[in-house]
Write a protein that binds this DNA or RNA. Structure first.
Lengths: 230, 230
DNA sequence: CGTCTCCTTGAGTGTCCTCAACATATGTGG
DNA sequence: CCACATATGTTGAGGACACTCAAGGAGACG
């Protein structure tokens, strides 16, 4: 990783939902205490068990949070995009140990804010805490949903659900741009690349989807697809 | 359910971690706005999709939060005990719809606080928000762990992990008192009662545990048990 | 003591994982 | 820009784990 100590990281702060309600002066103040770090693709930001007391904010790029099972298999927890934050262990756990792994999946720049600074802002601007709370509540809901899916829905239903949540409509064509590799998608959906591949093939044979490129899938009839999965 | 409108629900408030740092007067104030509700065993507190804007605090009894899959199978998300709260959808989601089901699994009494009241307290006593945030962060970690387990660990490992997290040591005997029926344990661990039963039998055959009563299991060697699961 | 629920055990089946080979992308240095 | 090296994706065969369905047993409760 590479450190950059520009005087202003306001850009970093401005696009973050948890801070963007502040005025310029306030943002500037926060930006002062943030430091920017660059990571290259595949670089690890932290590992399970690392002690840490900073909040990470994605400025640019994408980060994958994942966990390892005893047997060494990966479970992708979520993918962070610019504006997302992570490392909330630091925010509130008195003992701040990371409970999973974070990896840059592209060239990524991060802003880091230390707990002691953040604590000040939380006291001074309660709205920040509200927004963090709102974000984490949302994530909790998603996480619980993911648990249910992974545990009781068959793989095909999980894939279809995932597709339906990532559709982009464009001139009477419904298609999906996969936000990650099939390999990572597999670990996200709690399965293997082979199974993902097979299910996609099956859906294609049945005339429900068409694979254009690795990342781009066309959906012929979303309603029919959703019907099939139930 | 049955409503009770005692003048004071301070008892209700006093034992709740998110409020118990307040002084008597403050607690009294909050208690004023809370109302107590009683539920009998198996009664549903709310269902998926219900609109709601109250925070629920368990005063007495136990509540099970669960979710239903398309196919009708249940996934138990968590069990709440006295002092726990739920319904945080109301706290922060502008549109407060419940995303899962809540059922009393014993005679249960609840304190409910309306969003508009709670919002006031959050502003006046920021420490409350901090504690809620802390609690939800903790739950997020647990939920993510549950996702990983359910998705990649085999059932036996999940059971062993669950047992190891509920051990109670007593005079050189290690045993576990199951906090719920095997039926509910099955839905919690993302499996079926039959499979749970089989795994317990298997562990017993291998001399690792001994079932004394339905709810009480003795563990002969915890280290060995944990070793087996990896 | 009978009923009901929960638990247990058995038999059969299906989904998905593993391992392995091959194909296709992606990226790097010559 | 091509050739090679590496990573990612696809397809096949075989097998394991856990689910379903079904019946019998054990507790709990009135």
């Amino acid at each position: 990783m590479a450190y950059h100590n520009h005087h202003s990281h306001v850009d970093c702060i401005r696009l973050v939902p948890i801070f963007n309600h502040l005025n310029d002066e306030q943002m500037h103040l926060i930006a002062q205490s943030a430091n920017e770090v660059q990571y290259v693709k595949n670089e690890l930001l932290f590992r399970f068990g690392d002690k840490d007391d900073t909040l990470y904010i994605i400025n640019n790029g994408r980060v994958r949070i994942y966990s390892l099972s005893e047997s060494g298999r990966e479970q992708t927890i979520r993918i962070l995009h610019p504006g997302d934050f992570m490392g909330e262990v630091a925010v509130l756990q008195t003992e701040g140990y990371h409970s999973n792994y974070a990896e840059a999946i592209s060239e990524t720049s991060i802003c880091r804010i230390h707990k002691k600074d953040l604590d000040q802002y939380l006291d001074r601007y309660p709205e920040i805490m509200r927004r963090i709370l709102s974000d984490i509540t949302k994530r909790l809901q998603l996480s619980e949903k993911q648990t249910v899916q992974v545990s009781i829905e068959p793989v095909e239903a999980r894939i279809i659900d995932f597709l339906s949540e990532n559709v982009e409509d464009e001139k009477n064509h419904t298609y999906v741009t996969l936000p990650m590799s099939k390999k990572d998608l597999a670990t996200y959906l709690g399965t293997t690349p082979e199974t993902i591949s097979r299910k996609f093939s099956s859906l294609e044979e049945r005339g429900l989807i068409k694979r254009h490129t690795q990342k781009c899938v066309e959906i012929f009839d979303l309603d029919e697809l959703l019907f099939v999965s139930s």
